[in-house]
Design a protein around this nucleic acid. Structure first.
Lengths: 199, 199
DNA sequence: GCGCGGGCTGGACATCTGTCAAGACTTTCT
DNA sequence: AGAAAGTCTTGACAGATGTCCAGCCCGCGC
């Protein structure tokens, strides 16, 4: 088993199906996503899902794990690229707005899952872990920002995360409701917050 | 019709059933709440729900409307009671922590519904309205706080709302996950934020 | 006393869901 | 080539769900 192949075919298909699940979940939300719908968004039939996953929750958790990997490194390149506090500030604010527009549907899934975790203990461990990673991601940006600015931080890590998370969530709701000014507002708010609240 | 009675029997029963719906929703969440379950949490059978409501969504929206009324005035008495910035700050922070512990299950329903609105356009109008009311509620507290402190505000209304909303959501997740320190942390964070970020 | 109508019940319905198993097809190994 | 193991499809199942409806109950006016 360990010597069969350098590539793990079983794991690859699992990954592929989890990706289909993720796609479907981001379109329909947790409540309205069924296994048959997921299968239709893949090139397989619905029965195969129980060959690769023991459970519906197993499948969804695997999808969420994949999502986390993409999500958490998203802004790290901005941190290394930026040489001044000002460019970091503007780069991060612009990236937030871009994420809102381009990946809004994926992020609504994240908020959906986090809400589901408030009811389903099964999801809590994974959601808490992803949440902690997101907070760390924000903290990396914020500390580097203070470093570049040469000024001390006025916020703790949870407060910084709450601030950006709250702003993004608010913007997402308005954006998906058809408010085309939401992205621009988010960008301005992020810049303002970095100027006035963080330092 | 207008002269039949001072009390509207039809509307009263609607209200009563909406209350049962709200109760059930806060226990199970939007995804797992069925009409039969709602009926079991009331003293009626499931068939009656279609006598008073045209639809499942109709019922849920009515429940949410009732929720809003309770929610929005929650902290207003603190505003009028407090004579100093310090007492307003401490009162609000303590009230947040109390709400977390006492009404955590009701508030997780709110976060659930707000997430559902990201997928279901049917819910958006009501969710946006409630959200705006919550923001106004925060704004009333914050402006009064600055007034009592005799200092200018450093935050806009959306930023203030995002901040407290983000902190509360974070605390709720940890609290429901069994973290008993979450309420105390929320209280401290709220006080710190009012000292350092708001003014 | 008796019909009447609003209020409510309980069951029927079509549909959808997660789960599973029997078998067909494909790849791999001997 | 033929067997064995792995992969995938199809269909079936039991249960749950939203919706609807035929009819029961009960208080009211005639």
């Amino acid at each position: 088993m360990a010597f069969t192949r350098p590539v793990d075919k079983f794991g690859e298909r699992r990954s592929q199906l989890a990706e289909s699940a993720l796609q479907t979940l981001s379109e329909l939300g947790y409540a309205r996503t069924s296994l048959r719908e997921i299968a239709q968004n893949s090139e397989f039939s619905h029965g195969v899902l129980h060959y690769y996953f023991s459970d519906k929750v197993d499948l969804i958790i695997e999808g969420v794990r994949q999502y986390k990997a993409v999500c958490v490194t998203r802004y790290d390149e901005i941190v290394v690229r930026s040489g001044t506090a000002r460019s970091l500030r503007n780069g991060f604010a612009a990236a937030l707005a871009t994420t809102l527009v381009d990946d809004g549907t994926m992020h609504r899934l994240w908020y959906d899952l986090r809400s589901q975790a408030l009811f389903e203990p099964t999801l809590r461990a994974d959601v808490l872990e992803i949440d902690a990673n997101l907070e760390r991601m924000i903290w990396r940006i914020v500390t580097r920002y203070a470093e570049l600015a040469g000024r001390p931080l006025r916020v703790s890590s949870p407060v910084a995360y709450a601030l950006f998370d709250g702003l993004f969530q608010q913007a997402l709701l308005h954006h998906l409701a058809g408010d085309e000014t939401a992205a621009g507002r988010l960008k301005r708010q992020a810049r303002q917050v970095m100027d006035e609240q963080l330092l």
